[in-house]
Amino acid sequence: MSDWHWARAAEGVPHSGPRPFGWQEDRITLHPDEANLVEQAISDRIAGKAVRGIAADWCDLGVTGTRGGRPNAQTVTQIITAPRVCGYRANRGELLLIPETGQPVHGQWEPIVMPERWHAVCATFSPGSLYLHRGSGAPRRTGQKRPTPRYLATGFLRCGALRPDGTMCRGALCAQKGRSRKSPYVYSCRSCGRCSISGPLADEALEQLVFSEAQGLAKLPPLMRDRWRSGEMELEEKRKVVASVVTRCIVRPGVKGAASWDHSRVEPLPEHPGRAGWRYAEPTGP
């Protein structure tokens, strides 16, 4: 059976099983609406759009997968990084090559984009996120350490933008490169793409929450503040101090063209309804 599947793959025969998103039931002819969504998603991702934002757009349009599920960041990533979008054939996590030429095997189906576009969109993701490492039958990348956060507020911020139905997004805000000297990095929502905040502003706001507003709720030794502000305290220790005082923080959408930073945009988020967003912790010295 394994040899049979490999032979079919080498001949460019489409995958069996549920039809892939973007193609009709024959797995060869493009599905006009879905193929257009995939092509636009690839263009948006190459242009820098967050994949969670693309998934949110699909959800707003009422798009569902071929099995009826709602699209999320992972499924969108798998769809747009699958070799099939440019006509290439893969099997069990390997891109199949023609032995005589070393060129990729082309499938018998209609491609959505050119190979150059597929390579470009794959380059926007870390290797472990690609279809070839996470798709059906692909070997998983294991033994990799999670990257150490580079900024203070990473992992603490949640989106306070309102969805069309009036509910709060609460998606994670992730750090990315900014466009000015004042804000060399920013935290942006990867779920809805409707909320972002200057990185230095968010970090300052967290520091203010920890050492000003938290007083009387969490007892922080004076020496801790001195070590923090003198630069003696490393980022990892600062993040532990923040985590001991607040759980998560909501970031309210800002006002375009505001002349000054508004630290009140960052508010502690309660762990449970009806509670304030403080941990009531008592760190014990450096």
Rank of each mutant, 00 (worst) to 15 (best):
C195E: 15
H5K: 13
G166S: 10
R141D: 13
R8S: 14
E110I: 03
I28M: 12
G69A: 15
G93K: 10
P286L: 13
G93W: 11
V13P: 00
G107R: 06
R8V: 02
H272M: 14
R163V: 07
L37E: 14
G48Q: 08
A214T: 03
L223Q: 15
Y187V: 03
N36Q: 05
R27D: 11
A161N: 07
N36H: 04
V121E: 07
P32D: 00
N72Q: 09
T148M: 01
L157R: 05
T124N: 04
A259H: 13
A175H: 10
P164L: 06
A161L: 01
R194D: 11
L152H: 02
L30D: 03
A243Q: 11
Y187C: 06
G65C: 07
V51C: 01
S264H: 15
G135P: 08
D33C: 09
A47S: 14
E232F: 00
P18Q: 09
Q74D: 12
F125S: 08
T124W: 06
S244Q: 10
K177L: 06
A41H: 09
E39Q: 10
W6R: 15
E282H: 11
Y185F: 14
K256W: 14
G22F: 13
Y185C: 03
P184I: 02
R229A: 03
A55D: 00
E39N: 03
E100S: 14
P164K: 07
P111S: 14
A50T: 02
G257E: 08
W228P: 09
